[in-house]
């Protein structure tokens, strides 16, 4: 599902964010990406979403070579990926519902369906009572869950999250992890970047360890992978 072949990313002559990284994430896997701050986790996720291009190497996501992808194909490719950003990237002037409705507009879902689908996905993250709230009116954890709901609304083939539990208390972090676990059970391939080692240890998932831009270790999973089922939100 996600394949990196000798990927290097340099921002300038003196800063190498990723150095010769090669790894493969298979369909239906749940993989952690970990490493200290500045190890290259966010850069790697940006490469998967093709926010940036690699300096060297090849990246293939869902059967598509990102290096060869045309600019006008990019939006359609991104619709297959659910991304949870570290800073949430919610549109502040829009309500929770409007943040989700916008995605449905992009996906050409009939407006009469928007409320139903938004409610369903918000119920999954236990935030259905905040449909009409604006992001600044929500706590950090609630904003995080809205960001996850937005990523999940399309039943994405690949779900990527950048530090989704950062700055959250352990109970809330566990709740967030449960949501990702549910998405994984529904069949999404999940790649989750975090520096929370306890979280990784408890989960027992396969883990990629980055250090100063190099992939230094791959820890195998100790739990079985689930098979993909039909999307719960009916958009797969």
């Amino acid at each position: 599902m996600i394949h990196f072949y000798h990927v290097t990313k340099k921002f300038d002559l003196y800063s190498t964010a990723l150095q010769d990284v090669t790894f493969h994430v298979e369909k239906g896997e749940f993989v952690f990406l970990t490493g200290a701050s500045g190890a290259g986790k966010s850069t790697l996720l940006k490469l998967i979403l093709r926010q940036i291009r690699p300096t060297e190497g090849q990246i293939v996501v869902n059967g598509r070579n990102l290096n060869a992808m045309k600019r006008n194909h990019l939006p359609f490719f991104r619709r297959e990926i659910g991304m949870v950003f570290q800073d949430f990237k919610l549109i502040e002037r829009m309500t929770v519902f409007e943040n989700l409705s916008f995605i449905l507009t992009v996906l050409n879902v009939a407006p009469r369906e928007h409320k139903k689908k938004a409610y369903q996905v918000l119920r999954a993250v236990n935030l259905h009572h905040k449909l009409n709230a604006y992001p600044p009116q929500l706590s950090g954890g609630e904003q995080q869950r809205v960001a996850i709901a937005r990523a999940l609304i399309n039943d994405p083939l690949v779900l990527i999250a950048d530090e989704p539990t950062g700055n959250l208390d352990p109970d809330l972090a566990q709740e967030i992890m449960q949501i990702f676990g549910d998405a994984h059970l529904r069949g999404s391939t999940v790649l989750l970047a975090t520096h929370d080692r306890d979280l990784i240890q408890v989960s027992g998932r396969r883990t990629l360890v980055l250090d100063q831009g190099r992939l230094i270790e791959e820890k195998p999973a100790v739990v079985e992978r689930p098979a993909r089922t039909d999307g719960v939100f009916g958009l797969s």
Binding site: F76, R78, M83, K89, F102, V106, L107, R150
Partner: peptide, 15 residues
């Protein structure tokens, strides 16, 4: 910022 978010979630230039 909003335009950047739109691009990241798959909005086309037309949208």
């Amino acid at each position: 910022e909003e335009i950047e978010i739109m691009r990241l979630v798959g909005a086309t230039e037309r949208i």
